[in-house]
Design a protein around this nucleic acid. Structure first.
Length: 491
RNA sequence: GGUUCCUUGGCCGAGUGGCUAGGCACCGGUCUGCAAAACCGUUUACGGCGGUUCGAAUCCGCCAGGAACCUCCA
């Protein structure tokens, strides 16, 4: 099997040829959402980035097991509610069972992902369903001497670990700097050093998410679930681990330490990180309170939005930037994406209207190869899209009767569009109208436009313009063609 | 303060030592009863100052501005 794909490995800070450990199988783990609120635009970025990777690896012929977790046990909050995790806090506020909160937001997350045409992962494990596995890893680390028990909690001994291995290799930190700069946090006296991190946390009496363990009732530490679940489903060593750049430190750094401390070697071969989405130049994030949820984008119901943006517009917007660049949100940028996407989808639809000629006057110029080349270069989706726009011009020229295309070239274009636009980039044509009475409704529009044709035949321009203007005002896009007319809903 | 990174035309956004990225917007033309869509064409660029080089937006240095992480975060 060839290995055409290069990906940027955060660990080495270089693009590397991707060669799976157990070809043709690929193991891929991506940090999923903490389900204590609705998914926002920031959550769409990794989901779409790694969906692109999942789709592409599959197209290259790999058999991919894609694991994306659901974090439903915690992560402590840093505000006044000391020691209470996010899910538990939300549950108390809403007087619900924690798992009820989890289920509610998982359902909504799935819906949003489905709208974005993000394929479901192969396995979507819940942290709460893998407490036993996590306890086992904690035990191993304790047995190997890289952790200590303190007041019912277990902490990772970073200094001890750093004597045998290097802590900080992923994020480029060294332990001396961190010992000097780590801030004092909420009186964690039970930790020996500020840089030590929790493997298992003792639960205070009011803490409602808790499980029995050898160290008392509690819950797993912040980074343990990915180590335990990645190993369970992908093995002690697997190919790809992905997530947002903001997880590089401490989350992924701690995962590396946990893996090495428990089984003596690293688990992950390629670390991949998507960059952030910014708003006014700043990261869009939960803690900054500057996020816009996906549902708000889809409905347009947010003060910062001048209109609604469809899921495909959001997807296309994200794919128009390379995944390692920040992408800045603005209404202008989103509107540009919306129009560009429409143009591409229109061209894709136009392919079925083209009549082939004996020869081509348009030059495809190795379109398919160029698209593969771009994908192989660390998933350069913006370049793929630019090639598709080039093809769009060719398609429209033929449609306008200003160029010709051969049967073979037409077939090639159809295949390339299907392969790249729909299968790999994961764009799907958006539904034009909803409801069960589409046929009758369409016929009414046809009838109005037929009346307009009649008016035009009588040179009754006033009537012709009135029909067109009013339909336009209602959101229809009217085109006159040589045979009559075409229409569609403009959004 | 430490670590890492960024600064491209009106907006978004690729790229990279010499060859038009692309999209959106704008302008001119073709088409049209007029439009819309489409096609053709044009315009606007690589933060500042130095250096390396035959040649730098691309490499190096300094400066300015900005960001992420160092605390839950995609």
């Amino acid at each position: 099997m060839e290995h055409p794909l290069s990906i940027y490995n955060t660990l080495t800070r270089k693009k590397e040829q991707f060669v799976p450990l157990h070809e043709p199988h690929v193991g891929m783990y991506v940090c999923g959402p903490t389900v204590y609120g609705d998914a926002h635009l920031g959550h769409a970025r990794p989901a779409i980035t790694f969906d692109l990777l999942f789709r592409y690896l599959t197209h290259l012929g790999y058999k991919v097991r894609y694991v994306r977790n659901i974090t439903d046990v915690g992560h402590l909050e840093n505000d006044a509610d000391e020691g209470e995790d996010k899910i538990a806090k939300k549950a108390r506020l809403e007087q619900l069972e924690p798992m009820e909160v989890v289920q509610f937001y998982v359902n909504r997350y799935h819906k949003a992902m489905d709208d974005l045409n993000v394929l479901p992962p192969s396995i979507e494990p819940h942290a709460s369903g893998h407490i036993i596995e996590q306890i086992e890893v904690v035990k191993e680390i304790l047995d190997n001497g890289y952790a200590y028990v303190s007041e019912g909690s277990v902490y990772f001994d970073v200094e001890r670990y750093n004597k045998d291995f290097k802590y900080g290799k992923l994020s480029g930190r060294n332990i001396e700097d961190m010992l000097n700069t780590t801030r004092e946090l909420d009186g964690q006296q039970e930790k020996r050093k500020a840089i030590d991190f929790a493997l298992w946390k003792n639960a205070s009496p009011e803490h409602i998410m808790r499980w029995p363990s050898p160290w008392g009732n509690g819950f797993p530490g912040w980074h343990m679930e990915c180590t335990a679940m990645g190993r369970k489903y992908l093995g002690e060593t697997f190919d790809i681990h992905g997530g947002g750049m903001d997880l590089v430190f401490p989350h992924h750094e701690c995962e590396i330490a946990q893996a090495v401390a428990s089984c003596g070697h690293e688990a992950v071969r390629y670390w991949m990180h998507n960059n952030m989405i910014t708003i006014n130049g700043q990261k869009m994030g939960k803690s900054l309170g500057n996020f816009i949820t996906l549902d708000e984008f889809f409905s347009g119901n947010h003060a910062s939005l001048t209109q609604a943006y469809s899921p495909m517009t959001i997807r296309f917007f994200i794919l128009q930037a390379h995944y390692r660049s920040t992408v800045d949100f603005s209404n202008e940028a989103l509107q540009a994406s919306e129009k560009g996407l429409q143009r591409l989808l229109e061209a894709a639809a136009n392919l079925d209207k083209l009549t082939p000629s004996a020869t081509s006057s348009v030059e495809l110029g190795g379109l398919r190869a160029k698209c593969f080349e771009a994908m192989n270069d660390d998933l350069n989706s913006p370049i793929v899209i630019s090639h598709l726009f080039d093809a769009t011009r060719a398609i429209n020229s033929v449609l306008a009767g200003q160029a010709t295309i051969s049967e073979a070239d037409l077939a090639e274009l159809k295949e390339v569009f299907k392969l790249f636009l729909f299968d790999i980039l994961g764009i799907k044509p958006e539904q034009q109208a909803e409801g069960g009475n589409n046929e009758a409704y369409g016929k009414v529009v046809d009838m109005l436009l037929q009346m307009r044709i009649d008016a035009k035949a009588n040179k009754d321009w006033a009537m012709a313009d009135k029909i067109r203007n009013e339909l336009t005002a209602l959101g229809f896009e009217i085109k006159d063609t040589k045979d009559g007319f075409e229409w569609k809903l403009s959004k």
